[in-house]
Amino acid sequence: MNQTIRLTVNGERKIVTTDGDRPLLDVLREDLNLTGTKYGCGEGRCGACTVLIDGKRAHACLTPVAAAEGKAITTIEGLAKDGTLHPVQEAFLAEEALQCGYCTPGMILATVALLDVHPHPTDQQILEWMDGNLCRCNGYTQILRAVRRAAGWHG
């Protein structure tokens, strides 16, 4: 059933007319051409589709687009401002915390959300928070370093 849904995506107002049950992930990727948000599992178990909805981490694959009505969505394309990378993106670059890079957008957005909730996270908090995001290259060591760097541990 098509309905009109109003979203704010990366600061821009968007109106989409679509089936409200469609995953937000599909709408971002197919209707709004924002392919930085990745499909990984479709069941919220890998974190590749992580976005921020009203600043909170969400799995775009499990979020019906109708549930995002009127909300502010941030995708990986919306983190950099005027060509200046977000500090979390900079931290991932500084630590070379990427191999194939497919999980990277989700990892970065999960980190942004983490630092919003825990500005000075402990290692245990980082592990608990990030454990839902998979990296099949198993680059966890570098990603942890990037998260710590973004949290101001060093660097």
Binding site: T37, E77, L85, Q89, L93, L98, G101, T104
Partner: peptide
Amino acid sequence: RREIVTGAH
């Protein structure tokens, strides 16, 4: 790497 962290790739 920049294309990776910005989702542009």
